[in-house]
């Protein structure tokens, strides 16, 4: 399996005034194309920071992050925004749908940045909503949907541009058990059937068990599969 994501000696230090807080230290990680990786760890272990770095919404203090051959740590903010729009699909814990837009309009949002025609956008949105099983509720507003349905709309928004990687930050953290199962089944399907590379962060072992690969973070260090610091 060719590596899609290469993380080399990545460190992240947050600075506020004169106080420096190291969050990640010397992280090395490779994620293959079509991989489904779960990152686990306690609060403050740096798992969300690592996810943000892979997604290009934060920049490392040191090291390289190469995604699909591009060192995203060296891209400008505007280039990074453009890169994210075509390469990354985001799934958040609290769905983060726009409440004044319908499910259809929420899913259509990322496509407004493309050159697709209205008709083409409609086809893409309907296809994405079909995959997540919500085509019949495309005209519903978020407040008219259950938590699980909202997260499915958020997943449809994440996949509508057919990105290389899906980034999921605690995707089941706000859901009941049944809804969480449905979401993880859907994500497994996106990985196996649609060959999406998925990097997921969770603190829930059951959710993490649905991934193909599991890695632990602790105090900013990435532990190897056997649980020892790398």
């Amino acid at each position: 399996m060719a590596n899609l994501i290469e993380i080399k000696e990545v460190s992240k230090i947050y600075r506020r005034d004169s106080i420096e807080t190291p969050v990640l230290t010397g992280i090395n990680l490779s994620v293959g194309n079509g991989e489904f990786l779960a990152l686990m760890g306690p609060s403050g272990s740096g798992k969300t920071t690592l996810l943000n770095l892979i997604a290009g919404i934060d920049k490392p203090t040191d090291g390289e992050i190469i995604v699909g051959g591009t060192d995203i740590a060296r891209l400008s903010e505007s280039a990074l925004a453009k890169w994210r729009s075509s390469n990354i699909g985001f799934i958040f814990q609290f769905y983060n749908l726009i409440p004044v837009l319908t499910a259809f309009e929420n899913v259509e949002l990322p496509l407004l940045l493309t050159k697709l025609s209205k008709q083409e956008r409609k086809q893409h949105v309907e296809a994405a909503l079909n995959i997540v099983g919500l085509a019949e509720r495309m005209n519903y507003y978020p407040k008219q949907l259950s938590g699980g349905q909202e997260q499915r709309v958020a997943i449809a928004r994440a996949i509508v541009t057919d990105p290389l990687i899906l980034i999921a930050d605690e995707p089941t953290g706000d859901l009941d058990k049944n809804s969480a199962e449905e979401i993880m089944t859907l994500m497994q399907r996106l990985n196996s059937e649609f060959k999406k590379t998925i990097v997921l962060v969770t603190h829930d072992a059951h959710t993490a068990s649905r991934a193909k690969t599991l890695r632990h973070l602790e105090k900013g260090d990435l532990l190897p599969a056997d649980g020892q610091a790398a």
């Binding site: 994210r84 609290f94 983060n96 949002l109």
Partner: peptide, 16 residues
Amino acid sequence: TREYAVLKAIGFSGRH
């Protein structure tokens, strides 16, 4: 604030 962050994350630029 969160919506603007989400829009930025999915590729909307400062200009948007």
